[in-house]
Amino acid sequence: MTLTRLIIGAVLSLACGAGLAADFKTVGTAPAVLYDAPSTKGHKLYIVPRGAPLEIVLAYGDWVKVRDVNGDTAWTPLRGLTAKRNVVARAANTKVRSAEDEASAVVFIADKGVLLELLEPGANGWTRVRHRDGLTGFVRSSEIWGN
């Protein structure tokens, strides 16, 4: 009986953890206007440039509450976001390497705030990314936001 309870508890634990994974979208071709409420009648707070990643916090009809790279939350219409995934370099001199290894060659260095396309989500603490110039490589998952 105790073993069964342990197994059920472990399965439920894993199921709950999977449901807590962050959901990210990217601002589409036009900049996104962020509001203080889920309506165009709300106050406009700020504009997020195209290509910027946003974390979906809550969905309400055709609107989503999002969190930006600075941790600020606001509302925006879901139709302005795309499933394409971009990430942002968190710090100056973020090294993008040729392989998932600190000893591998540096392909390029991204400055703080540089947008990178997410190619493959993090494995073993590394994420494969592409710069808009076409260069690709691996960056430590902890050094980017939006993954």
Results as ranks from 00 to 15, higher is better:
Thr73Pro: 04
Val106Ser: 07
His43Ala: 12
Leu115Ile: 14
Leu6His: 09
Val66His: 09
His131Thr: 02
Ala91His: 09
Asn70Ile: 01
Val11Met: 15
Gly51Gln: 14
Lys95Phe: 11
Trp126Phe: 13
Thr76Pro: 08
Val88Gly: 00
Ala10Cys: 12
Arg67Ser: 09
Arg67Trp: 01
Trp75Pro: 02
Pro38Ser: 07
Asn124Trp: 08
Glu55Leu: 11
Glu117Trp: 00
Val66Leu: 09
Tyr46Thr: 04
Ile7Val: 14
Trp145Thr: 02
Arg79Gly: 11
Pro38Asp: 07
Thr94Cys: 09
Ala18Phe: 14
Asn147Cys: 04
Leu58Tyr: 12
Gly51Thr: 11
Trp145Gly: 05
Pro38Met: 02
Val69Asn: 03
Asp111Trp: 12
Glu102Thr: 11
Ser98Ala: 15
Asp68Lys: 00
Thr136Pro: 04
Leu81Arg: 03
Lys41Gln: 15
Asp72His: 05
Pro31Phe: 13
Pro38Glu: 02
Ala110Gly: 10
Thr76Gly: 12
Val107Glu: 12
Val106Thr: 15
Leu118Ile: 06
Val33Thr: 08
Lys25Ser: 04
Ala91Met: 02
Gly42Gln: 06
Ala99Pro: 06
Thr26Ile: 01
Thr26Trp: 08
Lys44Ser: 15
Phe138Arg: 00
His131Phe: 05
Ala18Lys: 08
Arg85Ile: 01
Lys65Arg: 15
Asp111Phe: 02
Trp126Tyr: 15
Ala15Gly: 01
His131Asp: 11
Leu119Gly: 11
Thr40Glu: 14
Ile56Asn: 04
Thr40Met: 13
Arg85Val: 04
Gly61Met: 03
Val27Pro: 05
Gly17Lys: 02
Trp126Gly: 13
Gly125Pro: 10
Asp62Phe: 02
Leu14Gly: 05
Leu12Asn: 07
Phe138Tyr: 15
Thr136Lys: 12
Ser39Trp: 01
Pro31Gln: 13
Glu102Asn: 13
Asn147Ile: 00
Ala83Thr: 15
Ile7Cys: 07
Arg67Tyr: 01
Leu135Asn: 07
Tyr35Ser: 02
Lys44Tyr: 00
Leu3Met: 11
Arg85Lys: 11
Ala99Arg: 14
Thr76Ala: 14
Thr26Asn: 02
Pro38Arg: 01
Asp62Pro: 02
Lys84Leu: 09
Phe138Glu: 00
Arg128Met: 07
Gly122Pro: 08
Tyr35Ile: 00
Ala22Val: 02
Asp68Gln: 01
Ala74Ile: 05
Asn147Gly: 15
Gly146Asp: 07
Thr40Gly: 06
Ala92Ile: 01
Gly122Val: 05
Ala105Gln: 13
Asp23Cys: 06
Val69Tyr: 11
Leu58Phe: 11
His43Ile: 06
Val87Asn: 04
Leu119Pro: 05
Leu45Ser: 09
Val66Pro: 10
Ser13Cys: 15
Gly51Lys: 09
Leu119Asp: 07
Glu102Met: 14
Tyr60Glu: 14
Thr40Val: 14
Asp68Phe: 01
Gly80His: 09
Thr2Tyr: 05
Glu100Tyr: 01
Pro31Ala: 10
Gly122Lys: 08
Ala105Asn: 11
Met1Gln: 07
Ala123Ile: 12
Glu117Ile: 00
Cys16Asp: 03
Glu117Cys: 01
Ala21Lys: 10
Val106Cys: 12
Gly122His: 10
Val88Thr: 13
Ala32Trp: 03
Arg130His: 09
Asp133Arg: 06
Asn70Arg: 09
Phe108Tyr: 13
Leu118Gly: 05
Arg140Ser: 07
His43Leu: 07
